[in-house]
Design a binder for these strands. Structure first.
Lengths: 156, 156
DNA sequence: TATTGTTATACTCTATAACTATA
DNA sequence: TATAGTTATAGAGTATAACAATA
């Protein structure tokens, strides 16, 4: 018998809703994020802010438009996270000398400390989430998700 | 060489961010949802509203608290969707005669028509998303996601 | 003209706190 | 006391429209 979400709420007729993969992807996503949000509260950052911080740390002077391309989100959306991170002292923005339209982003000491702590939490959460799977299954899940992602339709 | 998101933005040093599965799950989730939102605009419903409608259709007289349990979201959150669906004529709520605290939910003709159309869109989108995978891979992805979901930590 | 950043505004999904009514 | 529903409010993440500055 295949695994099914039916077991969780036997009183409901799911009528095939649990055959929609997106439902489970969404639920897992929400559970992961809300747990992470609570754990990051101490550091005054949100999950998305950490992701931005991660790339700024690894790419000093990166532009907002590069982040927009990577995350597949719009520039004003990126800007919002950058503004929050700047206000909280995790990031600084210096106008580029080469192209005065663009402003490079740099992480601060505070930001770097926050990132280090956040990374630990993220790795622990993720290992936790995947613990019901064997190592082979984890690798396969990872491979399949990436494969789907790589040919996923862009927003535009 | 393993599949990697690095290929999409070669100019960025991802510094292991793409080894975080949650990042890809989140991106896929958002891409799926935003496409679906646009397609459902005509019918004046959102993805989550359709999911609610789906279960109300299959379980006439269902209570809000049952939906809360299934979706793992709080009662006030369910209520919000129910209110929207009621205002737009997709749903009606009748107080139960057995337990006057509870109100059973029933789908309307409009709601049923919307659900039928929405289901088509959802199945098409999903087939599209999974098309890069072979049938075996799709089945395996489904199995792994459900397995993760079933042992995923609850919110509480 | 095209790109980068910005501001203003709005929508979707979710939560918590506090309330009413009923069991 | 516990459960069902409700109201009010807020926060995270996202978008579009419109603009200024620069290339």
């Amino acid at each position: 018998m295949p695994l099914s979400r039916q077991a969780v709420t036997p009183e409901l007729d799911l009528d095939g809703l649990d055959r929609v993969l997106g439902i489970h992807v969404g639920t897992i996503n929400t559970l992961l994020l809300s747990r992470l949000e609570r754990q990051l509260e101490t550091f005054k950052v949100t999950p998305k802010q950490v992701a931005i911080l991660w790339l700024v740390n690894a790419n000093p002077g990166v532009k907002q438009s590069d982040l927009s391309r990577f995350f597949k989100i719009e520039r004003p959306t990126v800007h919002q996270f950058v503004r929050q991170l700047t206000m909280n002292g995790h990031l600084v923005s210096e106008p580029s000398k080469l192209d005065r339209r663009a402003g490079g982003l740099w992480i601060t000491e505070t930001g770097a400390a926050t990132l280090t702590a956040a990374r630990e939490i993220i790795f622990t959460d993720e290992a936790d989430l995947l613990s019901p799977l064997t190592a082979d299954e984890q690798a396969e899940l990872y491979r399949l998700i990436i494969k789907v992602y790589l040919s996923a339709p862009s927003r535009t």
